[in-house]
Structure formats: structure tokens, C-alpha cells
Amino acid sequence: MTTREWAGDAETRQVTEVASERELRELIGEPNDRAANKIRSRLHDLDRQWLARSPFCYLATADAEGRCDVSPKGDPAGFTLVLDDATLAIPDRPGNKRLDGFRNILANPQVGLNYVLPGRSDTLRINGRGRILRDAPFFDDMVVKGNRPRLALLVEIDEVFYHCSKAFLRSQLWQPESWQPDAVPSRARIAKGIEAPDIPLEQLEAHYGAGYADRLYG
């Protein structure tokens, strides 16, 4: 246990920090046998069914110094190709060209994936090693609306397991009555306030408006 002063923007606060796994276990305890032993190294048929129906996942990467990035990936359900029981492929689609995750993978191939099924509060987690491909025969199976990916992420699986529902249930994520999309400014107004202050709001609203979805694969 370590007590130290933390200087926040508003004031300096005293915090007590956990400094070892032993201290973590003293606070939280040990997992039960089912949780401790649920990790597998190969896909089960049930995992394949989940991947065939999932349209969305988060991809976690880290660079050589351990600085992390998490990027959302989405496409029609089944966008992740299962090449065999230990290998996946995920197409890359047009984006902002920052390539944060890909640049991380070039330095550190370890990746984490969390697959979401809309309406379900459990998720499928996959950890493994990533490789960036610029072509492969299966790229032809990744064409969506005429877009054949220029790159794909190949993941060699190390760990597969399901994550419980608690976080989704606590957040009420799938309960429409809890949704408040207008509680914060629109994407156009966020861009105006942070990223593009010199661009007229009307232009940003047009960019992020109804036609935005038509340019997803352009």
C-alpha cells in the first residue's frame, strides 16, 4: 500500500494506491474455479456462432513502451473471418488514416478483442498476436459494398473466453429508456469546439449529417 499526493486540475488529493498483486488479492479475494479456468486456446463452435453474428468489436493494442489504444471495429455481422480454430482475420475499412492500432502492432503484436452482440450483455473476449496483411486470397470474402480492404489484421489466438454481463447490466446499455443521445453536443459541435474551430458549423453539420453513412466504404 502506498499513500501519496496526487495533483489534479482542481486540487491536490491524498490517494492510497495498490502496489502489489498480493494487496489486490487481500482486497478482492480469489476467483472461483470456473472463472479461473475458463480460458481456452482454441475456438469452440459456440464461439464461431458468436463471431458469425457479431457486427462490432473493440481492438486493444499497445506500443513498445506499453502505451495503449482501443479502437472500435464494425461491419455487417460476421465481418470477422474464422480461418481455423486458432486464427481470425479482420478487414480494415476507410477511416481517418491515423493507424494507431496498426502502428502499435508493428512494435508489439499483442492484441485484445472484445466482441459485442447487440442486445446481449455478455461478450466474447479473444487475446492473441496480430499480423498486418496487405493481401491474401480471403480478401475477396471481405468485400462490402464494393470495398475490398487494402489491409487486414490476422490474429493468432492465445486466449478465448466469455465475459459476464455485469458491466452492461449496471450501465443499462441496451435499455432504450436510459439512452440520452442529446445529453452532450453533437459530433459536429464537438469537432467545432475541439478539432476544427476554423470550419463553419454548417459545413461540419453537413459532413456529419445524413450523408455520412453513404461514405462509409468510399
Rank of each mutant, 00 (worst) to 15 (best):
P176Q: 03
D198L: 13
V70D: 05
N127A: 03
Y162K: 04
D85G: 13
A89L: 14
V116N: 01
K166W: 00
R98G: 05
L151N: 08
F102I: 14
A136L: 12
T61K: 12
P76C: 02
E156K: 04
P31L: 14
A10N: 11
E156A: 14
R131M: 12
A188R: 05
Q172T: 07
P185I: 07
K192F: 04
E26K: 05
L204D: 03
H207M: 12
D198I: 07
A210D: 10
D92M: 10
R120D: 03
P185D: 04
G29P: 01
R134H: 14
L46V: 01
Q175D: 11
H207G: 00
P149T: 10
V82M: 06
P118N: 08
V111M: 09
S54H: 02
P109E: 00
R22C: 00
Y58E: 05
L59F: 08
P91D: 04
V18E: 01
L59H: 03
R13L: 15
R170L: 13
S71Y: 01
R189N: 00
G119W: 04
V116L: 15
V143W: 02
F56W: 11
A36N: 06
N127K: 01
H207N: 03
A60R: 02
R150G: 08
A183Q: 06
L173P: 00
Q110G: 00
Y58I: 10
E17T: 13
F161T: 02
A86T: 12
F102P: 03
R125F: 01
K166N: 09
R170K: 15
A183H: 01
I199Q: 09
R67E: 12
G211L: 12
Y217S: 08
D85H: 09
D158H: 02
D140T: 13
D47E: 03
P181N: 09
I199V: 15
P94I: 06
V70R: 01
E156Q: 14
R215I: 12
R187M: 06
F138N: 08
N32I: 03
P200W: 08
A52C: 02
R170V: 10
P200N: 02
